[in-house]
Amino acid sequence: MSPRNFRNQFVVLREVTKKYGGLTALKKISFEIGEGEIFGYIGPNGAGKTTTMKILVGLLTDFEGEVYIGGFQVPKQKSEVHKLLGYLPQSVGFQEWRTVDHALKTFGKLSGLTETEIEKRITEVLDLLALSEVRHKKIAQLSGGMTQKVGLGQAILHNPKLLILDEPLNGLDPLSRYQFKEVLLKLSKGGTTILFSSHILSDVQDVADRIGIINRGQIKQVGTLNELKEHLAEQRTVEVLLTYATDKWREFQNIKHVKSVEQPSVGRILVNIEKGSDPDDVMNDLAQLIVKQKIRIRGINLLSPSLDDIYQKYVQEGESI
């Protein structure tokens, strides 16, 4: 995704700490989310993602630190905050007797929509989520994925300025996940600020403007995917793919600023560059050596860390503490 600029900070968390008895679930976490931004929140189970979201939506009120949404303080100005947000919890539950239509009507009324607005919005939301066919069905009879979509429906029904989604893609098939992500992008373009958590890193990568990594109740890193890559890429690696097996690759070790060279599989050479050195200089020297040594290659690439690599790094870092 190309980076977008967000001037106004719509969500602000400052030094937020939450304890459950003797267990500290969040340790002085701070981050901000710009208006209209999609913020991907990732971390392993029990890292503190759901706790953060519950604090934001006002379900958990007993915490230290400061939280603001749209300029209103949480939980002090909860009623103002509640008018601004839509929330999809990790496990969404509806009363068994409710139909999709009835659930949306009730939540629409509770969110302050008029009868006319409710009718209009229900039709729009069900069309958007491809749920029109099940409008009058009981939610209890729907599949897990469909129920999750109804959950998103109730969250976006009143056109909230902030959408908080806790693991919204769980239990969805690939097509539904794609549709879900499209909906998020569409809402964001319309100005909705979105905070969502997920374990599926590729999904976060697809839609998030910025990503926050949390582990053991602490924010490890916040930034755009490129910023996170830059931060991680202190040690860069160049991959050289040989056309045929040869020992000449050992010569790469003599290039200036090359820390080490390894061959993880036949014909695939990884050249690790020293920290702080310019990878372009090393690649230039490498290319000259390849020509000089008449080594036949299929390709030469500067490897960029994936979100998986970044995630693993920060999570493992936490595990080793």
Partner: peptide, 16 residues
């Protein structure tokens, strides 16, 4: 039942 199935969550995040 409603407490354990998180039914109230969707109500409590609304202005009531």
């Amino acid at each position: 039942n409603e407490k354990n199935r998180n039914v109230y969550t969707l109500f409590l995040i609304r202005p009531l």
